[in-house]
């Protein structure tokens, strides 16, 4: 087991290097450079620079350096915690990333827990009550959940809440708590708000996972060992939960690697509509404004979050399925 984990961590670092390369490419892809942006800003402020001054700045920023040297400079600064400057906000990208990332992680993890719990319960129910009215109803909701883009669902929920309930549901806190220091009241207020993004972001994933769970469980229920369990005289409930569900779960853990990126994706987009203080709104704005150091930092950190999530999923899978552990 320990060997397995060490090997996975090794993979993680290899992947991480490539993630950094892609992050770097993203910075370099758009036409124009950091320096040009700076010059524009200075000119805008009314200043002017001589050719020699520009030359000096070019050397300082390494504009004409070969690409590998640029990469090396960027990555060596990155690992020391210097992610570059955000032009738009005129502050280190690091400050902005670390202010926003925790909320993305918290919401994503909560969404994951929510959608797993619901999809296991719903999946088990609909697999064991196949072709009943409730199973068909669940199927209808699953199809709808799979077809509605999360941001649209967010819009509909907000409009509904505002129009029929008269509630303002955007954000994570009520107005009076936004800038307040942490307190029990603020925490309760957070709980009152956070379930909406969780349900909205999780809807798609829940619909998908519960379908996966249903079909996995149906497969497993047809397995010989389920019949063996029944032939022991076990309670049907125990046959389902101990013998069938346990085996239906590991394909679900395997798709965890796919549902995590989907959740983070959904979170970033939904955050714009729901006005959440997470990475999404800032990241997409940075892309639109070509604020590339900020955008790249966000992207790299989203990827790192995912990589760690996948590592945990792999470990969970190995724990669940002895065949992988002894591979």
């Amino acid at each position: 087991m320990l060997n397995y984990i060490i090997r996975r961590v090794g993979y993680l670092f290899v992947t991480l290097i490539f993630v950094m390369v892609i992050g770097f490419v993203i910075i370099e892809l758009p036409p124009g450079s950091y320096l040009e942006f700076e010059l524009q800003r200075i000119r805008l402020l009314g200043g002017d620079l001589s050719q020699a001054q520009i030359k000096a700045l070019e050397i300082q920023y390494g504009v004409n350096d070969p690409i590998y040297l640029k990469f090396w400079k960027w990555i060596s600064r990155f690992v020391t915690g210097d992610f570059g400057e955000s032009f738009e906000y005129n502050m280190p990208a690091r400050t902005l990333v670390f202010a926003r990332l925790p909320f993305t992680i918290i919401i994503s993890v909560l969404t994951l827990i929510f959608s797993w719990t619901v999809s296991i319960v719903v999946g088990v129910y609909s697999a064991t009550h196949r072709r009943t009215a409730l199973d068909y109803t669940i199927t209808v909701f699953q199809f709808i959940g799979l077809s509605v883009p999360a941001f649209l669902l967010a819009l509909v929920v907000m409009v509904f809440a505002q129009r029929t309930l008269g509630l303002h549901v955007g954000g994570l806190y009520s107005d009076q708590f936004v800038n307040a220091p942490w307190s029990w009241d603020k925490f309760v207020d957070l709980l009152k708000h956070i379930w909406i993004p969780i349900v909205v972001i999780g809807a798609h994933n829940t619909a998908w996972l519960s379908r996966v769970m249903r079909s996995n469980l149906l497969d497993v229920l047809g397995m010989q060992y389920v019949q063996t369990a029944r032939s022991k005289g076990l309670l049907e409930r125990r046959v389902i939960w101990k013998h069938a569900v346990r085996n239906a779960l590991h394909p679900l853990v395997m798709v965890l690697g796919m549902s995590l990126p989907a959740i983070i994706s959904g979170e970033t987009v939904v955050a714009i509509v729901l006005n959440l203080p997470t990475t999404g709104p800032l990241y997409f704005r940075a892309l639109l404004q070509q604020d590339m150091y900020l955008a790249a930092s966000f992207l790299v950190f989203l990827a790192i979050t995912l990589l760690i999530g996948n590592l945990l999923a792999d470990i969970l899978l190995a724990w669940l399925d002895p065949r992988i552990r002894f591979e």
Binding site: M223, Q224, Y225, Q227, T228, A229, H243, R246, N247, L320, D321, P322, R323
Partner: peptide, 11 residues
């Protein structure tokens, strides 16, 4: 049962 490969629970 007939199939020893599948009649025991792998987990």
């Amino acid at each position: 049962f007939q199939e020893p490969m599948t009649s025991l629970n792998p987990s």
